[in-house]
Write a protein that binds this DNA or RNA. Structure first.
Lengths: 337, 337
DNA sequence: CATGCGAATTACATCGATGTAAATGTGCGG
DNA sequence: CCGCACATTTACATCGATGTAATTCGCATG
């Protein structure tokens, strides 16, 4: 089987110089129609395809960006990835997707381009990164962080207003008369991660409604998966007094909780309300369907890609951006919708 | 901000030749410990990282493989992607993930390497590919197909035994006394796609049990999403006589059906059984939990990566493989488990 | 101390595409 | 028919890493 043809082969076949072929490929304007036609035929005839390595070596750009998320089988990240890839596509970029499993080491690797000068920049959704990791990173690789923000400054950042989102979701529960609202996946003290910010928003809502805060109702979890939500909900049912609502910090926790409540015969929303975050597709189809805080994922993707490409084009001058994306509380059956 | 250092800069810093630096990077054996140490320090000091483009240009390999799936927000593909990426990682390869949206044009592009000589090979999960597309493809790019197989030969292929899987799932329903089993997403005539093969398996099971086949019970769908399952289930409830079981050809259809049945007040598995395919994580946590056919996803991923890498190493000689992966019917609440 | 041998290191060419600058071609006015 | 302006096309060098082959080094032996 013949080796892949090079630009030189196409040139010889077409009877022109390699550079002319290159000019045709790149739609350079000063190429006569006849030459362009001849070259295109040669490309077709030989089945020629650009070798990206050669191009990148010359141009210094790959046209690829890295997207690093914790886990693809967490629906939120899969949906986000889908949007980022679509947006990148629209802007002529290719996405290299990585999973970090939320492990600091791998997030660090992402932050530094996976020990290869590979893609032009990185969009990273961190979980375990330490503030110092971000502060001391190698500034030569453009990075946009999503969601968590271990440290101010140093990178561009895109996220929803987590405090406001949690406040609104909590207010919704309070407006339905709920008073003992548990926070599944919450965190009272500790770094300003998403869990902490959302717990803060929850507390703000309680305060506004003059409902006392009870730290026993803030339940940390190992991970944000179904099983953790199920486990936490089961534990909360045994508490005395029982909570009358669960504010779950993502939809998987909430869906796991729904399952546990079903197993215990607790009616939702009759006896207890449940709210999630992320608005993954499953939350529309669960039984009962799930009230949730929907971030504008498309806008997150759009902003992240835009910020990153700007930063790639112009690494130094433009000021660091902190893009806040809209969100919305979608009321469904799990809170009487 | 300084530009990224090249191998030459490291060489100068360490006082050796570029080739020696390269030897250190690639763990070439004939390098003295002292030199190795010096070079490593220089790499560290300058923050040097390999430029993949340069390496690939020289070596003719990228160490990257493409994985092209229809949609990441279909959980099965997200889970599969996760496994493929993990397996590729284990074998020192990086995965470039693409979504085709099940559009023939994009699948064709994947089959041909996305008009760039980019990755070393492609793992493609096709939906819309025409047999001719596969038969006439450019053989210079190694390809492994997953699931659907538009044409025999021409590529390596990995899938479960769809006929047997559907036969077993149907037999399970029959053993529970179900006799009017609808196939959601099924196809009686048409190409040997997954839907057709599974419908064939369903028919085999009926035949073995001497249950007559009724083509009205085979319901095609637009796509394999929740909403399509919900829609199909709703339509089937209005049929007379009603089916007493739904064999849904993936879990999303099944979960959507469960939702529709819940809305209509039909008890599962009391009045009606539901079975899915894929064993996505959600099927463990749905209400009721879902009986489903679980393909060995890890093995699919392992085999696909292995076949592809073999083909990359040795494009011509080894015979085309058709790897059949194991599956298992997991009985849960939706069929009385 | 010359010689030989393997280990360690290096010079050089090369992978494929494209930017630069120079060369060639074309059309038009004078 | 000449010369100029502009459009096309081309020669050549270059991006960064590494394979090949040649060179240098270190050390033991006669």
């Amino acid at each position: 089987m013949a080796a892949r043809p090079r630009i030189k082969d196409v040139a010889e076949y077409a009877g022109v110089s390699p550079k002319t072929v290159s000019n045709v490929i790149n739609n350079f304007e000063h190429v006569s129609d006849r030459t362009r036609e001849t070259v295109k035929e040669a490309i077709e005839a030989l089945g020629y395809r650009v070798n990206i390595a050669g191009r990148q070596l010359r141009q210094g750009r790959t046209g690829m960006i890295t997207l690093a998320v914790p886990e693809l089988d967490v629906a939120y990240f899969a949906e986000l990835a889908k949007h980022v890839m679509a947006e990148a596509d629209r802007r002529g970029q290719t996405v290299l997707l990585h999973q970090t499993n939320g492990v600091r080491e791998r997030e660090l690797a992402a932050l530094h381009g996976f020990d290869a000068q590979f893609t032009d920049g990185v969009i990273l959704s961190p979980l375990a990164l330490h503030p110092r990791d971000v502060a001391t990173r190698d500034r030569r690789l453009p990075v946009v962080l999503l969601g968590e923000r271990p440290a101010e400054g140093s990178t561009d950042h895109v996220a929803i207003d987590n405090v406001a989102a949690a406040r609104e979701a909590t207010a919704h529960l309070l407006s339905r008369g709920r008073r003992r609202i548990a926070v599944v996946g919450g965190m009272v003290r500790g770094p300003q991660g998403t869990d902490r910010l959302r717990t803060d928003g929850y507390r703000e809502a309680l305060k506004e409604a003059h409902v006392p805060f009870d730290s026993d109702l803030v339940v940390p979890v190992d991970a944000f998966h179904w099983r953790d939500g199920a486990r936490a909900a089961a534990a909360l049912l045994d508490a005395d007094p029982r909570p009358d609502a669960l504010l779950c910090l993502n939809d998987h926790l909430a869906l796991g909780a729904l399952r546990a409540l079903y197993e215990r015969g607790v009616s939702v929303p009759g006896e207890l309300d449940v709210v999630g975050f992320d608005d993954i597709e499953a939350s529309q189809f669960s039984v009962p369907s799930l009230t949730t805080v929907a971030p504008d994922k498309r806008e997150i993707a759009r902003a992240a890609v835009a910020l990153l490409l700007d930063r790639i084009d112009d690494p130094d001058t433009s000021p660091l951006q902190d893009h806040v994306v809209g969100h919305e509380v979608i009321v469904r059956e799990s809170t009487g919708g």
